[in-house]
Design a protein around this nucleic acid. Structure first.
Length: 422
RNA sequence: GUGGCUAUGGUGAAGCGGUCAACACGGCGGAUUGUGGCUCCGUUAUUGCGUGGGUUCGAUCCCCACUAGUCACCCCA
């Protein structure tokens, strides 16, 4: 136990950290272009925030939250997603005073007590954006466009964008009743899961994989036929915008989001080869959440993307960058005196922004040369008794194996000159 | 939470109910005196094959439980 991470968590080791940095840099660059500003909220919040915000009957709240009492007796929950937190921060800090629209993005760990699988972890990382304060479908299109630009910018192919409208508090209940009415006399024939969906979230019955449920669902009413005028026009304007932007999408009237706060637009970018974890980016509009959290009624739209899944997709398409950890200089010191001279040179090189390494174990020259090579050093600097005696160091170009003697006094400048020449 | 599959050294990966548990990569050292990348040699490693039980004269190979990973379901990023 002492040497094992908790289930569903993992170390991100130095040999893969460059992949994360690469992805995060892409994200930050893109968000700057789109005018989304970074926000960092606490890893944990009052449990109440998530229960109210996400919905008490959702799977996330009912069975996936890391909830515990702190020493003061408050109920605390590790954030399972970040939208509720951003909304909380938006309200608490009165950010609505900044203007009619606020655009945020975040990158960070989320926690859900799930059964782990590839692409599904108990601690995982999300990048998400939230645009709060604008109701126009144009902002929906912008948010989707940002997600699209990220995935395309990473070079990913075969990504599928699905969109749907899940209606609003005005029209969704009407549709829901229609749907329940449709399944009422078929209830006994539905699978166990669907029977619970019937009351919980009947829209999900339409997506059941059970063949019999599929049969029963034939001819069921579709949400898009029951949208109110407002939702319907919002949805069609969004489609017009996406078409205008050249973003391919498919309509999926069965697309449902798992969290209660979604209204109108729902969308999902999928990468099918990831199997059950193929949803790599999902989001939608949540016009009711801010009010639910105690603010004025405020429209908002956003998405979240699972970084592990994006990385997984990038890996399958061989789009990950390779690590570049080569150093500029490796100093080879032979003997105690030389070691002292070497650490001094190390320090000087580093203060001149050159990456420099040496061995501290007093190994053989051959061994140190091997290390220089393994570290990808551009130059090796050799200092032994001979060099100390003549006050010259040997500077060896590791690529072409040319080497020269350089007086100590001129050493740093010479190395800087040589490295920059390459 | 439900079901299937898997679990050998740092890594990849052979193997059998009973001689030192292959091989490859890696690590370390060496191939004439202070020099790398190729090649060659040596050496290293698993507290005995995830953990704990059981079957057996004897198990890494058989059984059970647990743990972990993985796949599917649920749901989701």
């Amino acid at each position: 136990m002492l040497t094992t991470v908790p289930r569903g968590t993992k170390d991100i080791l130095p040999d893969t950290i460059h992949e994360w940095l690469y992805l995060e840099n892409k994200i930050r660059t893109l968000c700057a272009l789109y005018g989304f500003n970074e926000i960092r909220t606490p890893i944990f919040e009052h449990t109440e925030l998530f229960m109210r915000g996400i919905g008490e009957t959702t799977d996330v709240v009912e069975k996936e939250m890391y909830t515990f009492p702190d020493r003061g007796g408050r109920s605390i929950t590790l954030r399972p997603e970040n939208t509720a937190s951003v909304v909380r921060a938006y309200l608490q800090n009165k950010l609505y005073a900044n203007g009619s629209i606020n655009k945020f993005f975040y990158i960070g760990s989320m926690f859900r007590y799930d059964k782990p699988q590839a692409g599904r972890y108990r601690e995982f990382h999300q990048f998400g954006v939230e645009a709060i304060g604008e109701q126009s479908p144009l902002i929906d299109a912008e948010v989707i466009s940002l997600g699209d630009a990220l995935l395309k910018g990473l070079g990913l192919k075969d990504i599928l964008l699905k969109i749907n409208s899940v209606g609003c508090p005005k029209c969704r209940p009407v549709y829901r009743e229609k749907l329940q009415a449709f399944f009422k006399d078929k209830f006994a024939e539905l699978c166990k899961d669907c029977q619970s969906r019937y009351t919980r979230n009947p829209l999900r019955i339409l997506d059941c994989k059970n063949p019999h449920c599929k049969e029963l669902a034939e001819g069921a009413p579709e949400i898009t036929d029951y949208l109110c005028d407002d939702c319907a026009s919002h949805f069609s304007e969004l489609q017009e915008s996406l078409t205008n932007l050249g973003i391919d999408f498919v309509l999926d009237s069965h697309l449902v989001r798992g969290l209660d706060y979604y209204t109108k637009t729902a969308f999902e970018f999928k990468y099918l080869p990831l199997g059950a974890q193929s949803a790599i980016l999902g989001g939608g509009r949540y016009d009711g959440l801010i009010e639910e959290c105690g603010g004025d009624s405020t429209p908002a739209v956003g998405f979240a993307t699972g970084l592990e899944r994006v990385l997984l997709a990038l890996e399958t398409q061989k789009l990950l960058p390779v690590q570049n950890s080569a150093c500029d200089v490796f100093i080879i010191a032979l003997g105690k005196k030389a070691e002292q001279a070497a650490i001094k040179i190390l320090q000087q090189l580093r203060s001149n922004n050159l990456s420099a390494l040496m061995d501290y174990a007093g190994r053989s020259m051959k061994s140190q040369m091997k290390q220089a090579n393994k570290n990808g050093a551009k130059y090796a600097v050799i200092i032994g008794d001979n060099e100390l005696a003549t006050a010259n160091a040997i500077v060896r170009n590791m690529k072409d194996s040319e080497q020269m003697a350089v007086p100590f006094a001129a050493l740093i400048d010479k190395i800087i000159f040589e490295v920059n020449k390459q």
